[in-house]
Amino acid sequence: MTATKVRILGIGMGPSQVTAEVAEALRTCDYVIAAAKSDDDPLLSVRRAVAEDHGVPVLAVPDPERDRSDSGDYVTAVRDWHEARVDAYEKVLRARGGTAAFLVWGDPSLYDSTIRVVEQLADRMPLEYDVLPGISAPQLLAARHRMVLHPVGVPVHITTARRLHDDIAAGQRNVCVMLGGSPDLSGLGDWSIWWGANLGDASEELVAGRVADVAEEIDRAKSRAKQKVGWAMDVYLLRAP
């Protein structure tokens, strides 16, 4: 039996961030599989734009609902959600075969589970896959603010907004936060922040300064980004005084 091929392609923050390597790989694919969270999913539109730029059709697959009712059982909720995605994508791959692509926002190695999902698919069916990197949100944040993510001799800790205060309590003092949601910056008024939303898009917003001085400005900037395109995906670096 001929194995289906899957290419996991990092597309950075959208069409302007697609590398030459990823563009070449995308053109070898028969179709793109993309999760559709709703009928008017704005991030699906971005993936369609990338695929159309390279002449590849998109097959939108309704994204299973994730149980968000019990934040204390986050790991189980995400695991069940991934399994539901595996079920949905397996049906498509078995029916279509050929070479399929998954277009990953940012880079597949960082706060994305496409690789985990495809690993599970490979356990269920004849499937070969490869991974190509994309420009990550922290990379672009650093470039936009013309900075290095860490001072000399100091590590940078990459985490999520959900874990931010636990990580600070554990001693982290130079923290890059992804999956920002509604950031809780309480108690961090004297820290410095370098913030960005929708990096690489025409709706991009940037704010930097002392947290106490710019917190309200960040809220306004995030609202502007969302008004322009219907979504706001932010990332920021926090550094202790």
Rank of each mutant, 00 (worst) to 15 (best):
A3H: 13
K5V: 13
R7H: 15
M13F: 03
S16R: 14
T19M: 05
A20R: 13
A20C: 10
E21Y: 09
E21I: 12
A25V: 02
R27W: 02
T28L: 06
T28K: 12
C29S: 12
D30E: 14
A35R: 07
A35G: 14
K37N: 11
K37D: 14
D39G: 15
D40E: 14
D41G: 06
P42N: 07
S45F: 11
R48P: 06
A49Q: 15
V50P: 09
E52V: 04
D53N: 14
V56K: 06
V58F: 10
L59F: 14
A60R: 02
V61I: 14
V61A: 13
P62V: 02
G72V: 03
A77W: 04
D87S: 10
Y89N: 07
Y89G: 04
E90F: 06
K91N: 08
L93Q: 10
L93I: 07
L93V: 04
G97K: 07
G98M: 08
T99Y: 04
A101H: 03
Y111H: 08
S113C: 08
Q120E: 14
Q120I: 04
L121C: 03
A122N: 02
R124A: 11
P126K: 11
D130V: 00
S136T: 00
Q139W: 03
Q139T: 07
R144N: 11
V148W: 10
V152I: 14
V156D: 09
T159V: 13
A161K: 07
R162S: 13
R162W: 13
R163T: 09
D167W: 06
R173A: 13
V175S: 06
C176S: 08
G180R: 00
D184L: 02
D184V: 01
D184P: 00
G187D: 01
G187W: 02
L188G: 01
W191H: 05
S192R: 15
W194V: 05
N198V: 04
N198C: 12
D201G: 04
D201K: 05
A202N: 10
S203H: 01
L206F: 03
V207W: 01
G209H: 03
A212T: 04
D213W: 05
V214K: 00
V214A: 01
E216I: 00
E216D: 15
R220V: 15
S223F: 06
S223H: 12
K226A: 14
Q227I: 02
W231M: 13
W231P: 03
W231F: 15
M233H: 14
M233E: 14
V235L: 04
Y236L: 11
L237E: 04
L238N: 08
